[in-house]
Write a protein that binds this DNA or RNA. Structure first.
Lengths: 317, 317
DNA sequence: TGGAGTGATGAGTAATTGCTCATGAGCAAA
DNA sequence: TTTGCTCATGAGCAATTACTCATCACTCCA
């Protein structure tokens, strides 16, 4: 993890250096001279500005191919919104590109003047997107987590993104004070009956927009890696036809939620209405192809941010 | 001007290359490989994306607005250096912010390894800046005062800042052993002819950098408050078109030095060359708006440290 | 058909940037 | 006060990027 806090004065300098470099187009040598520091220090400040996300770069051009793919996806699957970013074949990252586009979309929603309820799911991709958010103040909006924030080992779940979001966005935020998976359907009923949990659940059901990651199943998938499921439970699930999950809700190749013991133990809020609200999935990558397709065809989501490669797969499959 | 129109396909490629470069963070070599073109072509596409403004960079930091204002001021008035600090609307202080920024700028100059001559004018703002200086040792530099250090009543003039500077900075410093105003042009000639004064004047003319305050005229302005001018002399001056002063040199709304008896009695050294050296004015605040504008348009100074509010006035005036 | 002009291309090279490492200042614990 | 640690710094060097120039393909017009 990066340093939690740089001194404000240093961030100021970083902002200045970053501005001179990216906006004014000066070289680091010139910046160093102007600020009375060595070139290396100037370089470090510029890096810092990037690392601290003071500098935001966005592409203001509809790449025709991406737009076209997005259009076709929207039509083919009846989606409300699709965004396709260029693929970066060389990179193994599962987040680059999507994270920036996702952050931009979140920002657009948060900048709306009328108050909204924004719900967030979980996942590495979504966290990467949230980490790209600039500081925003929007006291009118409410941000609610769909998933619990207690990991299997009792610690705060790392990929519960609402806390990352709270770092950047000044708004009321509502985490879900629950584990991600409970031990039985009965326990879930009990916990969901609690007043505090109840009101958070109710709020999430009224979300205007929801951002979720889409997880693939498999022993390398997030549910196993993060310790929510044992390897043999996973194998069992996959034998039962499971191909993906959103907020822990496991679905099959048609995007139908599975009727099995694991789904009965998921303590997450239900995914908000795809009829009445926007539910945006963020995902790309070969390993997730099947999960994404299932989520889309089964209408677990009604909007998608993905990359070219994934878009092509979805179109020809 | 750039080419009027690139083909859409080429812009598309440029957008893609720009995306891979700035968002995905790939090198131009990698982009070239991915797109099947030469590295040079990739570089050209990235340049094109920037030139066509497909790539938008924005700085997410409060400093950003200040930097933007500074840039506009520099362009509009042809200044060599501009620094804009955030306005603090709540404060009535005429120095807060500027003082710190001014001190930082002075420090940058004093930290230069090659020997320089640094000249200082007078004024409350400048004194506040100098008071912010940390202890520095710079035996190679020389610091020279542009203005006399004898007040009208014969005491040491309070706002002659070179003594404050000497407290913090270990360097050779050269005060001007003169009154600020003498009784006649003849007396000035006589005093300026003295060997000691002569050499200090010569040194000031060679200053590499000069820091000055900008004074407004008016019966509340520094010239009256500090007793250099009587109220009726001031009224007379203002009727003659005077709007501001630097080191006692009084100028009109166009920044032209006035041809009147007071200016003939100013014993200060002339303001060093704005062609060959840096002359940095420190000032902000509504009362000084006209004086600052005059100093800038009349090239009495070629660099400015001010605040947002003043910067906005200068830009729209 | 041929020649001039335009613009794209790649080689070569200069400029700029990013990384690594050694050093030393600052500071906390012994 | 000494020791050990962290961290900022600047030097040196490797990687990357930007620029210049010669060449070449193409188009337009006589």
């Amino acid at each position: 993890m990066a340093k939690r806090s740089e001194t404000p004065a240093r961030l100021d300098d970083a902002a200045r250096a970053g501005w001179l470099y990216y906006v004014a187009g000066r070289t680091q040598d010139e910046i160093a001279a102007a600020m009375g520091i060595s070139r290396q220090s100037a370089q470090r400040l510029v890096s810092l500005a990037v690392a601290e996300r003071l500098i935001k770069v966005r592409l203001d051009h509809p790449i025709a191919a991406c737009l076209e793919l997005a259009n076709q996806l929207r039509r083919k699957f009846g989606l409300k919104h699709v965004e396709v970013v260029p693929s970066d074949a060389g990179s193994s990252s599962t987040t680059v590109g999507i994270a920036e586009a996702g952050a931009a979309e979140i920002e657009r929603w948060l900048k709306r003047p009328e108050p909204i309820v924004l719900a967030v799911g979980t996942g590495r991709t979504l966290k990467a997107a949230v980490d790209q958010l600039p500081a925003i103040e929007c006291p009118n909006h409410r941000i609610v987590s769909l998933t619990g924030n207690i990991a299997p080992d009792g610690s705060a779940a790392y990929y519960n993104v609402i806390f990352s979001m709270a770092d950047a966005v000044k708004a009321r935020h509502y985490p879900m004070p629950l584990p991600v998976l409970v031990t039985s359907a009965e326990e879930r009923e009990l916990l969901h009956g609690q007043q505090l949990v109840r009101s958070t659940l109710d709020m999430s059901a009224q979300a205007d927009v929801t951002f979720v990651g889409i997880g693939e199943l498999g022993i390398d998938g997030p549910l196993c890696v993060d310790g929510f499921l044992e390897k043999d439970e996973m194998m069992e699930l996959m034998r039962g036809g499971a191909v993906g999950e959103i907020c822990g809700w496991i679905f099959d190749v048609d995007g139908k939620l599975l009727d099995n013991p694991i789904n009965e133990r998921v303590a997450s809020a239900p995914i908000p209405s795809r009829e009445a609200s926007m539910v945006i999935g963020l995902a790309k990558g070969k390993r997730k192809f099947k999960a994404i397709r299932a989520a889309v065809v089964g209408h677990q989501i009604n909007a998608l941010i993905t990359d070219e490669e994934t878009a092509e797969f979805l179109l020809k499959s």
